[in-house]
Amino acid sequence: MADVRLRGAHRAVRGRRLTERPNWGAGVAAVVWLAFVIIPIYLMVKDALQTTDSYLDGGPLSLPRHVTGHNFVDVFDRGFTRYLINTAIVTVASAALTVLLAFPAAYAIVRSRSRAVSGIFRLFLAGLAIPAQATIIPVYLLITRMHLYDSLTAIVLPTVAFGLPLSILVLASALRDVPRELYEAMTLEGGGSVRLMWSLALPLSRASLTTVSVYCALNAWNGFLFPLILTQSDEQRVQTLGLYNFQGQFSSNIPGLMAAVLLSAFPIFVVYLFARRWLVAGMAGVGGK
């Protein structure tokens, strides 16, 4: 995974002629795309700020007659806080567990000479191919037989399992970039495998750890299928399912529904505002593999 900071360093060196010349054709396309992206978002925000009556009477494009924050209050009254907390628990647990499992595995895959390890690596590579939907029936069966049905744990377990292959792949390619000489140097100072991983490999693969965490966290935050099948009660509901349910509850109260949609994306939006580079690099990193 190309290091983001390195890329930044090239920036100054590279010429600024072509890339900074105005490009009218692409510019027009970009503006059209901008409109396409922004209109639904604009409508979302605008609708969330008006009353149902003003939405229905004014039609989809009218400006709100009065701005109201009532819809947001309404969403919270319907227990959205709990959904957000549940989602946060699932997100943190999934990301932490994935990294905890994937990093030692990736380290061993790169450093170990055992045939068994390379065999297992092949298994993970093959695992990239398993679409989560295809296994949902037995996953459901397993979870119910383990008496985990309708719990947040039930969501975390398969989410982590299906996040592992890509995480290990990303981490392994990053660890391969750590020069062999560094391992040898540290070994001379008397380091075992644990110390090598902890004080050498870990600090040097911070960028891909970010990538993997962002990838797993986003996956868990936005997960829909596992919560849909593996949970049922209001107590265990995550935000995506909360939205899905609100759809019927709000019926023609589109402003209320849009307020819920906005609130569901709000935490990620805050991360985006304050750690944009980090988030974007994380997403691009996964794609780069």
Binding site: I89, A93, L97, L142, S151, L152, T153, V156, T231
Partner: peptide, 26 residues
């Protein structure tokens, strides 16, 4: 199914060590 559940049981302690919520108390 029982053996499947048994294998699965092995990883349960692993998970609780990571501080996720336990089986739901619905």
């Amino acid at each position: 199914f029982l053996s499947a559940a048994a294998i699965t049981g092995l990883s349960a302690p692993l998970l609780s060590a990571c501080g996720t919520s336990g089986p739901a108390g619905a």
